[in-house]
Simulated assay, not measured.
Amino acid sequence: MGQSRGKAVLRACGCAVAGLVLVAGCAADGTPKGGAASGTPGASAASGTGTPGTGGTGASTPAAPPGSAVPIPMPPVDESKQPKTAAEARDLLARIIVAEQDLGPEVVRSTPFESRPGRWPVLDAGCVWQTEGLPADVLATSTRYFHIPAKDGRGRVRINATVTVHHSREESGWETARAMEEVLRCPDQKLREGEELKTLWGGVFYLGEQLNAWTEDAFTETGKYVSAQDGGPYDYTWSQAQYGPVTVAIAAKGAQGVANEDLSSFVAMGTSMMMIQAKQELGKAAG
């Protein structure tokens, strides 16, 4: 999608700032600034004791999150590397999506760990999330579910990562546009029975706008998470980024004793890591 679309959506949202890039606060080398208190989720993400970059390619790469003062290289997409079939798309997203060790030593797999193949989330007219078969513009998509177990008075933190592969850049851009429209249409959303998101707002920044120097289109959504099992309301943050035909996203649901800055560290690390791996897989080689 183009720059005019991003600006128009942002105006419709009340010119909201990009919460992720401003809240996460990262150093130029990609590490969260200042770290977090010992025992908090942010401390895990910032510690570097995980193995960044191994969720997809296996190569260790520095995570340069949104908000970094140093622009992340934006290589042109090599069209010869773009997947043409669903099988090729599934193979690509498996090399991009993060694993639990990429997010920190306290992060573990949830059950179920991965979404059902061939299914797609859809927000219906009543602002309730349903699942349907993949739309025509999606070659493949996958979501992985993680959490940090409750410990020492801190509640359980839920994290999920999603990679979606489309046929083209135009299709992936429309996905970001639809996500923004969903926030405007449904600031309150029901995820499933006993689990809801409240007072959502979002911001879209095309490449070059504000602090976005790392993705073709950046979308951030924040609000409150309420669960019959976990309690609440707690902070909720979701970020999506686009590179060519691929979108990557991380969502983090807070808990008792967890600061919003901690959630933002996970979201910034995970999203930027997957963007780096997407560029490695699809970008044209230098020279």
Rank of each mutant, 00 (worst) to 15 (best):
G50K: 01
H166N: 06
F146A: 12
A252K: 04
T49A: 15
Q277L: 02
F205L: 14
Q280P: 01
P52M: 10
R95D: 05
A16E: 05
W201D: 13
V21A: 11
M274D: 09
Q280W: 06
T141L: 05
S110E: 08
Y236L: 01
V128S: 13
L207I: 13
A259K: 08
R158N: 10
E182R: 09
K190N: 11
A278Y: 08
R185I: 11
A45C: 10
L93Y: 00
C15Q: 13
K279Y: 01
A150E: 12
T164K: 03
P105G: 07
Q256G: 12
L263W: 01
T111H: 06
I276A: 02
T199A: 09
G56C: 03
I72Y: 05
L20H: 08
S264E: 11
P233M: 11
M275A: 03
T141V: 12
A28S: 13
E88L: 11
R158E: 10
G202M: 10
R11C: 09
G155K: 12
A268L: 00
G39F: 10
I148H: 04
Y236R: 00
M180P: 03
R144V: 06
G254F: 08
S168E: 14
D91I: 05
Y225K: 00
A89G: 04
A27D: 07
V128R: 10
D124K: 08
G254S: 09
G194A: 05
E79P: 11
C15G: 12
A125G: 13
D188W: 10
E106F: 10
V23T: 14
W120N: 01
E100I: 07
A255S: 03
L200C: 02
L10G: 00
K198Y: 06
V248T: 14
E261C: 07
A286N: 02
R192F: 08
I148A: 05
V226Y: 02
A241H: 13
R169T: 14
G287K: 04
P105F: 06
A241K: 11
A87T: 14
W129H: 11
G6W: 08
A228G: 12
S142W: 01
G2S: 14
S80G: 09
K33R: 12
Y236C: 02
K190P: 04
E221L: 11
V183S: 03
V165K: 00
R119D: 04
K7T: 14
T237W: 12
V23Q: 02
V9T: 03
V122W: 03
G6V: 08
G231D: 02
V9K: 03
F219I: 07
H166Y: 06
A27H: 08
K151E: 13
A286K: 03
E261K: 15
W214I: 04
A69H: 07
A249L: 05
A177M: 13
P121D: 08
N212H: 15
G42D: 14
D137H: 11
R90N: 14
T162V: 06
A241L: 13
D188V: 11
K84V: 05
V107E: 00
V258W: 00
M269A: 05
G25L: 09
R192I: 07
S142M: 09
P187R: 04
T247S: 03
I148D: 08
T131I: 07
P62F: 00
R169N: 10
S264C: 11
A64V: 15
D217H: 05
M273E: 12
E182F: 06
